[in-house]
Design a protein around this nucleic acid. Structure first.
Lengths: 316, 316
DNA sequence: CAGCTTCATAACAATTTGTTATATTAAATC
DNA sequence: GATTTAATATAACAAATTGTTATGAAGCTG
């Protein structure tokens, strides 16, 4: 026999509160409303739910059993309410974030940890991709926000762009690299060593080409390619290979003492790391919270880098 | 924010079924009904629950989260329905049974085990008492059924009596008792040994007195009293003490080989073991099921005793 | 692009829900 | 044991909700 969820909830409230009047108060309803519900329930069931003509009100075994189900429903309903409230506050929900692999692995993943330290009820679903994929994912509603280097001129197409860090690359190497002995490495020196290529399709790969061009270097020895950041760092640590990496990523890993940047100036890409969101997308508070957290974290990082550079001067 | 349980259920059905139409079918409703509910929910929340303009219908993270709560509600509701159906079939519920201690401990408790082997979803709450207490408990709705010896003439007072075994007592003793050596023990022999008194207030105690009277015995040595059946049996096993017990109880424990009955005839009490229920009480199917089970079990027991007596003749 | 399926909207009838006012009934009190 | 008090049941009514059918709009499929 099918019964109304609302009725079960009312029954549960009455049983738990120990009286019709009190139960009504718990639910914020009038006593006659509950009284009628109970009468109707008993009529439909053909079984009493309470021992009649006796106070305090005592449920029959059946009444008690049904009230337990009602209690579950009431709890679930309250949990749903809490879900909504917390969703609105941006302290719960799901944030689906996509981004370019090196930034995600090198910076964002740490920031996510810090974020969830503050907002443990927001779960993060991470995915990888470059600008065109990410744009498509945003538009298809597969992700809520993207973290990605974007050409400064690139704009429009319904995407909202929020810059969080100016583009700046460095030539990275193991912190025991022989070239670090030299005061001013030349372009020729760079040709001496093997290179790690950034992932195919990444802006870094394009940057690498333009760097080589600006240094007047024709070709380099690519020894390793296709690896994610962890592979690149490991490889670099255990070899004298060079690669081009975002300044911020190398900076973030300076604590490990394994890698560093060569003191050589290379041109800045006309590109900034930023947060991308769909302009037309519904505002999800948790995504706002997350975006703000990431932006703040990058602002802090920017400050840190600035202070660090006052001590150590990179390049010439 | 408070939301309607019904709406959450409908949301859950849609998410689980993967479409409005399918969800409506699951709940036995029309598609527009669900469609309107969802529209209303989204309007009240100010947040989309589904990714619009896209098929197959995909819930947003919020929609999915709320649907999970709805699923819980739906399950609880179905469980409640099942509780009712099963209650009506008499295969679930609670049976509160009261009875005289020796019968409960000696016979009924075993029958409850057999009962629950067949009906595992019926739980039994057992309590003890003699006729007057039990009658009061029945009338107060504290128990659903009583198992108790009742004077054959005693009747009325809104109680329905169902006889399940004619009263018959025996003098019980350890199975190694010296009197068992004698072919025909006399009343004087009975005076030689210590006696265990049945619990105060029990019909057995009254029976004991009338037995002594009929045997022309004035007084006996009471050595032990106030014990429950387990104590009485243990005491008897470890001594040569005698007591008066229902024939059926001694019979039920014959398998243990520890106790038996003396071959001496004592008068039957004008009393029968029976099931008592309130005539006016609402019919609880599980109680019916239980009462029938107990009655059947006693019928079987009666047959067993009869066959057993054709082999072994008790008393003279 | 036609055809099919699925979802959204409109309009309306029926039921349900909640309210206040009042009668009953069980417990408490003297 | 009569009387008072607190709690529950009932009645009457207004408002909101729910469900229905009919129909329009929007995506997918071939």
């Amino acid at each position: 026999m099918k019964l109304d969820e609302r009725h079960l909830v009312q029954l549960a409230a009455v049983v738990q509160a120990g009286g019709v009047t009190e139960g009504a108060a718990v639910l914020g309803l009038s006593q006659p409303a509950i009284s009628r519900t109970l009468a109707q329930l008993e009529k439909r069931l053909g079984e009493p739910l309470f021992v009649r003509g006796r106070r305090p009100l005592a449920p029959t075994p059946l009444g008690k059993a049904l009230a337990e189900h009602g209690q579950i429903i009431l709890s679930a309903s309250r949990a749903a309410s809490e879900t909504i409230d917390s969703f609105r506050r941006g302290t719960s929900g799901v944030v689906r974030v996509g981004g370019s692999p090196f930034f995600m692995d090198g910076l964002i993943s740490r920031m996510i940890a810090g974020f969830q330290d503050r907002y443990p009820d927001v779960s993060i679903e991470q995915s990888y991709g470059y600008l065109s994929d990410l744009r498509a994912s945003l538009q298809a509603g597969r992700i809520d926000v993207a973290v990605c280097p974007v050409d400064v001129l690139d704009e429009g197409s319904g995407l909202e762009f929020r810059e969080i860090l100016p583009g700046r690359n460095v030539v990275a190497c193991s912190s025991t690299h022989p070239l670090l002995m030299k005061r001013k490495p030349t372009s020729c020196d760079l040709l001496e060593y093997a290179w790690i290529a950034p992932p195919p399709g990444s802006p870094l790969l394009a940057d690498l080409r333009s760097i080589l061009h600006s240094l007047g270097v024709a070709e380099i020895k690519i020894r390793f390619s296709g690896g994610s950041l962890a592979s690149v760092l490991n490889y670099m640590t255990a070899s004298n290979a060079l690669t081009v990496l975002p300044h911020s990523v190398v900076f973030a890993f300076r604590k490990g003492g394994q890698i560093t940047a060569l003191p050589i100036n290379i041109p800045h890409p006309d590109r900034s790391l930023g947060l991308l969101r769909l302009t037309a997308a519904p505002r999800i508070p948790a995504v706002d919270t997350f975006a703000n957290h990431v932006a703040d974290a990058f602002a802090d990082l920017g400050q840190l880098i600035k202070r660090h550079e006052q001590a150590i001067v990179w390049g010439a």
